[in-house]
């Protein structure tokens, strides 16, 4: 009499474990990224396939979960960096130096955001720079410092946030996202030191 009851219990546990595992994998994949087709240059990541009609189900699920409305591919391309060029996660207690070069684009903007995508309150009272209002050296190159403490020149501050991401938006860029791009030809993020 015990054997059939035992089998029902096993079937029940099987279903329960299957459900938990399935939802767990969904949660992990949806939270971790925007699907397939990531375009990586050094610490920067863009998701060109999430910005057109050929979006995959994982990217679509991720967008819906985060409530995001991405840029269209014809509008531009968004790169997010959560680590410096050496691979260490960006830390609000550290200072960083960000410098040229950048791929061609009609306009670009560079700003800091929380990992969930909200602009950060900061003493610089500046949420970001655009290609038109950043201060450049002779020849057009620029450099920018990220620090909690006031700096001369182009300065962005993460404020009190310990974790932040750098968001670079290239508007109307002819950048080819099917080819690999040399990180040396993209914005570099170099850690200067920490508190």
């Amino acid at each position: 009499m015990r054997a059939p009851f035992d089998k029902y219990m096993r079937a029940f546990w099987t279903m329960l474990c299957g459900l938990a595992l399935g939802f767990g994998v969904t949660a992990a994949t949806v939270e971790s990224g925007s699907g397939f087709g990531a375009f990586r240059v050094g610490p920067w990541t863009a998701w060109p396939r999430a910005s057109g009609p050929e979006i995959d189900p994982y990217a679509r699920a991720g967008l819906a979960r985060r409530g995001e409305a991405p840029l269209g591919r014809d509008e531009g391309l968004v790169f997010v960096a959560s680590a410096d060029s050496a691979g260490a996660p960006l830390d609000g207690r550290c200072d960083y130096h960000v410098a040229d070069p950048l791929p061609a684009a009609r306009y670009w903007t560079l700003g800091l955001a929380s990992p969930s995508g909200a602009p950060l309150a900061n003493p610089a009272e500046r949420l970001g720079y655009t290609s038109a209002d950043i201060v450049r050296r002779d020849g057009g190159a620029f450099e920018l410092v990220i620090s909690r403490h006031a700096r001369p020149g182009n300065w962005l501050s993460p404020g009190d946030a310990n974790f932040f991401v750098l968001v670079l938006r290239l508007y109307e860029t002819p950048l080819d996202t099917t080819a690999r791009l040399d990180p040396a030809r993209f914005l570099k993020i170099v850690k200067l030191g920490c508190e």
Binding site: T14, L21, F23, R60
Partner: peptide
């Protein structure tokens, strides 16, 4: 039983990813 667990997990995963855009409460 382990195979059945994985099979169920796979089905649940695929269905939940496809349904996410419809059921996510705070989509754009």
């Amino acid at each position: 039983w382990a195979m059945a667990t994985l099979l169920i997990a796979g089905v649940v995963h695929i269905v939940s990813v496809l349904l996410m855009p419809l059921v996510a409460p705070r989509h754009a």
